[in-house]
């Protein structure tokens, strides 16, 4: 449900970056989205289409999503394991002293523009 709010943030940042680079129209925005970021890619796409098409600079602009796998590290045995599979408990030593090292990203990686515009 927070995807729409996130889309407004993306639009603001992309417009700022485009203006700073003298770009008139953006053709694609590439996002890095972590597996456990709580963003649902399908919802993000739907909200993006609805909101982006209301902006001249972003009409028809594609949203490309790279999914970043979530990895957790164990502070006791040093193991690194898949967060989605095992959660907060280390599958090697059963410790709960673990922390997420990636998978929480909601980042704008880059924007792509047609060089002729």
């Amino acid at each position: 449900m927070h995807e729409l709010g996130i889309v407004f943030y993306i639009i603001r940042d992309v417009k700022e970056a485009a203006q700073a680079n003298g770009v008139g129209h953006v053709d694609a925005v590439v996002m890095d989205i972590g597996e456990v970021s709580t963003i649902i890619p399908d919802y993000l796409q739907d909200c993006w289409r609805w909101a982006a098409d209301k902006e001249d600079m972003l009409r028809g602009c594609e949203l490309k999503i790279n999914t970043i796998n979530a990895v957790t590290r164990c502070g006791d045995c040093g193991a690194e394991y898949g967060t989605v599979e095992h959660g907060k408990t280390c599958p090697v030593c059963q410790s709960a002293n673990t922390w997420l090292i990636r998978g929480n990203e909601v980042e704008i990686k880059e924007i792509q523009v047609n060089d002729n515009n």
Partner: peptide
């Protein structure tokens, strides 16, 4: 043309 942003939303 690719413009790198790398910024958290």
């Amino acid at each position: 043309k690719v413009i790198e942003i790398k910024k958290s939303v």
